[in-house]
């Protein structure tokens, strides 16, 4: 089903949500909660060659199309990263390939994730986004 909201809309929702958090604890509790709620990925998709490199934890993204839109599932062995996977799925899932590939995803800086996650770890986030955009490009 088509996501009635655009990527930009969802980004704005997240910016609004994150602006309510007053402490780092709240921000990370939100991510941890997101990580815990993310549906587990079918182990068949958690293969070595699908593993995204770039951080201390392992990340897997499974991408497919349905009704002409790109869908994502994902997983990680670390809970905060799993939350980040959930966050990216929330923003990009069920969107047209073209929109995903071209999304600047500025909300990541606005909600302070790039500063809260040290360089090496946000590289992991960057690798995750790169993979999702690449998949969307191939599937589109």
């Amino acid at each position: 089903m088509n996501n009635p909201k655009t990527i930009k809309n969802i980004e704005q929702d997240l910016i609004d949500d994150f602006s309510l958090f007053e402490t780092w604890e709240e921000k990370y509790e939100y991510l941890i909660d997101l990580g815990k709620k993310l549906a587990p990925l079918d182990p068949a998709f958690k293969t070595e060659d699908r593993k995204i490199k770039g951080c201390q934890s392992s990340v897997w993204i499974h991408s497919y199309t349905k009704d002409g839109l790109v869908h994502f599932e994902g997983d990680s062995d670390a809970i905060i990263v799993r939350g980040l996977v959930g966050l990216m799925i929330m923003v990009l899932n069920g969107q047209p390939s073209k929109e995903i590939v071209g999304a600047p995803l500025e909300f990541i800086n606005t909600i302070g994730l790039s500063s809260h996650l040290a360089q090496t770890r946000s590289n992991g986030l960057r690798a995750m986004i790169k993979q999702m955009k690449m998949d969307a490009g191939v599937l589109g």
Binding site: E25, A78, I79
Partner: peptide, 12 residues
């Protein structure tokens, strides 16, 4: 507990 999660929260 994954060590990476711990490191992020300790850093904060």
């Amino acid at each position: 507990v994954h060590p990476q999660d711990l490191a992020i929260l300790l850093d904060n």
